[in-house]
Structure formats: C-alpha cells, structure tokens
Design a protein around this nucleic acid. Sequence first.
DNA 1: GAAGCGTGGGT
DNA 2: TACCCAAGCTT
Length: 365
Amino acid sequence: MIDQKSFSAPLLSWFADQARDLPWRRNYDPYQVWISEVMLQQTQMDRVLGYFQRWIARFPDVQALASAREDAILASWEGLGYYTRARNLHRAARYVVERLGGELPQEHASWLALPGVGPYTAAAVCAIAFNQPHAVVDANVGRVFARVFDLDTPVKERTARDFIAEHALRLTPPGQARHFSQALMELGALVCLPRRPRCSFCPLHDLCEARRLDIVLERPVPAKAVTYIPIDVATGVLMAGGLIYIQKRPTTGVWAGLWEFPGGTIEGAETPEQTLIREYMEETGFRIDNLRKLAVIRHGYTKYRVALHCFCCHLPDNTPQTPPILTAAQEFRWVSPKELDHFAFPAGHRKLIDQTFAGGGFCTE
DNA sequence: GAAGCGTGGGT
DNA sequence: TACCCAAGCTT
C-alpha cells in the first residue's frame, strides 16, 4: 500500500508550485472559504470567480449576508443554478448571527448542522479554513483515487466512497490538511482531467496503478448515464403601458423564489400560442391577445432539454391590471424594462430579456 | 438509494 | 448535434 510520505510529498510540492492564485487563498478567511465551497458545488472554477468577487463586495461578511434581502441574494446568484444553495446560505447566515453570536463555527459537527452544508462542504471548510484533518472528497478527488488505486466500481458507490475517504484521511500529512486537501482537488481539476489527462505532468505518475496498466481513460468507471427529456415550453412577455408583468415562483421546486414570465409546457397537439393563452388563464386569469412570436430559445435544466417558444402579448382594452387569480406564484409586479435587471430570472428567461430588450426596448407597444 | 435541483463549456 | 462534465445537498 502507498505510504503517506511517498504520496503527499510530490503532491504538496506540485501544489506549492502550480496552485492557482484564488481570492480565498490569500488569507483563508472562513466566511470566504465557505462561500467559495458552496459556489463551486457542481460547477467549475472559471464560472465561479466573477460571482465570488461580486458576492464578497456585496456581502462581505456573515452579518451583511444575514441582513440582506433574499431577492438581492438571488439576484447575485442568477445564472449559477441550484438556487437552493443561495437560499440556504442566507438561512445559515441568519442562524449564525442569531444563535451563534455572529461567529462561524470551527467544529465539523456544527458546520454539518447548517442548512446547505453536507459532508463535502463541512470537511472542506474545516480542512481549508481551519487546517483540520478531514477527508475532502469531491468529484476531482474521486477521479484521482479511482485512477491511482485502479478502483473498478463507480466512485459514488458505497465501497468506493468509503475506500477513498479512508485513504484520503490516511494520506494527509500531520499539519498539512489545508494544502493537501486542496492539492488533491487541484490535481483533478488541472492534471488528472476526465478526457484528456496530462499524465506526463502528474506528480503521482509513478504511483498510479491505472497509468501502469494503461487504462487511465477507463477510470473512473462511469455511473449510470442520465437520460434527457426534450420538452417544448411556451412563455410570453405581457406588456401594458410600457410595463412588463412578472411573477415570483413558489418557495419550493425548480427556480424557487426566482421571477419569471408566465407560461408552461406545450401539451399534446397544442400550438405554442394555444398553450400560452391557456397557461396565462390558469396562472393569472388574464385573457391575453395580440400574440407576436419573438424567438425560440434553447436551454436545459436538470434532466430536461427545453425549446422555449417566446412571445410578446397584451391585454384587451380596459382590462384591470391585477390578475384575478395567482396559482403559480407568490406575488406579481409590473416593472419597466430597465427594472428587470434587479430581479433574478431563470437562464432561459434572462436570455429572452437580453434578446428582447437589447438596445432600449423593442416590444413596448 | 434514487430522484430533484441549473447551467454553460468542452469534445 | 448530442452528448459528457463539474469543489453536492436535500428529501
């Protein structure tokens, strides 16, 4: 079995040389480490950096986050996806301020108790911010270990997970948890890549069993493939008097708490226009007319691949602007095109906004 | 354990 | 184009 020093020494040396200069690595402020870890869940570094800088400027510490409004938090998160993460950050910050005297915990178990903090994030924050030894196992580390130890089952399965966690902890040198845990993830992100591994640059080259057997691309063993479901959806920008109707989604489910234009899935033999008229009636009680096609926007979320059929639409003359019913939203507003920037929208709807109102407003009649 | 929860970039 | 991929958590 590989011993601690022969594994960690070349890895730490590589990390000291190759680690990226990331904002939270300047002083390892626990708040910044926490935010970065949550932002990085299920996404990649390049995508996060801009969001992180804007977030820290706007919510520089846990007190600022706790006292922020949820709409402002979601607006700062718009485009990152998995919006429950942002709502849980808000809940956790309020808990820390109200129950923990505004001090972030330093105990692994206390972190685990915060909303949105699971096994990975609790271990990562304690290792990276406080230099405590924990097994910090993300998808990168899973891939590195699957290759170095030639694991022949998917890394998400129990036996492989337990093996990886056990050895990640065993191989952590005393007093080096901060650097060791990051080095493993950094190696997975920069060298031990999924499809184009750069084995000739790898500090673990001589230890790697998959490399020795020349089966690096066969590790890790893939989990069951996801099947995607194509759907057609209709949505419409309702205009009246230069203002736009928007509504806030429920507190649970997909895009919880985000704002959107009404619409829904095209059923059976419906045309997109028929769907939109039906959905407006079901969701708001508005009887829309004068539909005009704007665009078809393609995007995906979770297991769905969406063709979003977009319209501009209006209300008949003398229609009251308060929706008679509101079955798919917490609240509604009429806003100017400029004000749309202050609300968080799902990515598909934001694309629609960018296309429709680029250059000062097209659909304003 | 499985499913729900987003998004954009790479190949 | 059509996949595949990513520093996970919750229910």
